[in-house]
Design a binder for these strands. Sequence first.
DNA 1: GACATTTGTGGCATCGAATGCCACTTTTAG
DNA 2: CTAAAAGTGGCATTCGATGCCACAAATGTC
Lengths: 192, 192
Amino acid sequence: MTGLRERTKRAVRAEVVEVARRLFAERGFDETTVDDIVQAAGMSKRSFFRYFAVKEDVVLGEIDFMGERIAAEIAARPAGEDAWTGLHTVLRTWEQRIDDERQALERLRLIESSPSLRARYHQKRDETREQIARAVAARPGLDPFTADLLTAAAGAALDCVARAWARSDGRADRLALVDRAFALFAPTRAGR
Amino acid sequence: MTGLRERTKRAVRAEVVEVARRLFAERGFDETTVDDIVQAAGMSKRSFFRYFAVKEDVVLGEIDFMGERIAAEIAARPAGEDAWTGLHTVLRTWEQRIDDERQALERLRLIESSPSLRARYHQKRDETREQIARAVAARPGLDPFTADLLTAAAGAALDCVARAWARSDGRADRLALVDRAFALFAPTRAGR
DNA sequence: GACATTTGTGGCATCGAATGCCACTTTTAG
DNA sequence: CTAAAAGTGGCATTCGATGCCACAAATGTC
């Protein structure tokens, strides 16, 4: 049982994230240095970079394993289902799982406010897209190009939904927007 | 006539790009430092950063004004045309304008090889997308959300085409791929 | 053609992110 | 209880990027 170690690690990480979140909200992401964060969190800079590969991961760390999990859910869809519907269904449930909407909105705004954060966000999103694309391509009757197209379009749709939602200050119905986006591109003969 | 100044500036810039291109091809982008480049080009580091805001722009500098021009072409489409067809037509001609395919392929590969290049590439692509989206949203009968969706999907489609083309070592017919991609998502009632 | 103004250049110092290295402490497992 | 494994902090260093300043070149004017 490797209990204590794991637990303290998680706790420390969560605390740093929280401390940093507050600093970012006050001064902005780029204006907050890693030195500021580690000083406020009472830890050394060297240790900070053991918890977070890059500064941006303080904000984006949670995204890391989403790709694998979504890919698994895609792979688990019924065999006869077309890929577009599968993507719609799976990604819809992920949108549904967002619990703290205030925090999600705050994070979206923060990401939009900093070029480096946006860059790293896109990078992670891209890795996620590739993982999902592989799962989609594994479905029968789909060539890699079409699989890539469907996945990329789905990802683009979610980006648009996030932007529209942020523009509405979180008042818009995210799920309705997702449905509208997927309906708009519903390919007549896609995914088969 | 502010001739000489402008011309030498262009010439210097072009030369740096060429020198750097060779270094990147030999050692890779991340493994080549700015010091390496300026030494090979015979210029100071300080001046380098007057020509290029960031190191990545040595590779991606040409992308800068594409957004405005594409947006202008979108705005100039016939009034009755639906937005998806307009995007297809305009972006198709841009794909057609790629003259040096070898170099385009080499650059694509370079971008894919370096995380920081990919990041900066995405960033610029995102700005371009926003410019185009504004032009699309200005078309009659389109709400901003739909305009954003169509633009983002078109951008995603072009990304897929570029990836597929790179996978085929430049042998695939890029224009045919573009047409396939746009046909796949041809929204029955979109853009009107 | 001499002159002041504008524009570009190089060198230097500095900042911030990130990494390698090493000595030291704590946890875990036998 | 002890040896191995894992985590921490401090230090030096690398690299990209920016501010500052003195100096050189080009431009436009008289």
